[in-house]
Design a binder for these strands. Sequence first.
DNA 1: GGCATATTTCGCAGAAATGCGAAATAGTCG
DNA 2: CGACTATTTCGCATTTCTGCGAAATATGCC
Lengths: 107, 107
Amino acid sequence: MKTRATLKQLESRAEVFKALGHPDRLRILADLADGERCVCELVESVGSGWSTVSRHLSVLKAAGVLTDEKRGLQVFYRVALPCVSTFMECLDAARQGEAVEMRRCCR
Amino acid sequence: MKTRATLKQLESRAEVFKALGHPDRLRILADLADGERCVCELVESVGSGWSTVSRHLSVLKAAGVLTDEKRGLQVFYRVALPCVSTFMECLDAARQGEAVEMRRCCR
DNA sequence: GGCATATTTCGCAGAAATGCGAAATAGTCG
DNA sequence: CGACTATTTCGCATTTCTGCGAAATATGCC
């Protein structure tokens, strides 16, 4: 039988969703979908300042969505939760009214 | 080949994630996982005031996560995007470090 | 119509998120 | 060490989100 989720569990999940709830952060996620990128590339793609992008990245990292690795002068970010990308495709399909084949949603 | 998502598309997805980014709203979603509920039941489960819960519901509905139906004096809410619930299970599993079988994530 | 119940809308005060530029930090190269 | 580059942290002004109680709306009942 199912137990009622604790507030802590809900807050932890909410943190992930909150992190994903910003268009620029979803852009970053899309950029990272096919492999790691350094911050400089993401700054260019998002089109706002370094400090802003850096904070977006730290939010995503704190939520467990991304991980980073420093190599030389640069920091590279990559997706830590691949199901997020596939879930997004699922969302898009479902919201367009398509009858979604759920099986395909979390590859 | 993949086209770069437009800002509008990203904003639309972000709206869904933003709606899910609050523990009380996730509680509501959990309550609705096994069927519709009237607002009064949700108010009791969430444990904050009517006006607050009502706004949480309107946020979720605006994002397309829930739908509502009025029957008599009561309004019943239900989940419109079932993949959200399964995605959440996937998240939990992935975040616990489990090697997740993605196939099971969006039933 | 008039009253009771269920829910939403409104207005407000406090909390959190955002974006920015300046300053701090860390790694590399000479 | 000193100059330079890549990135993060800080402080601040602005906007958005939250929760609450009061008032508004809608529905059913007598």
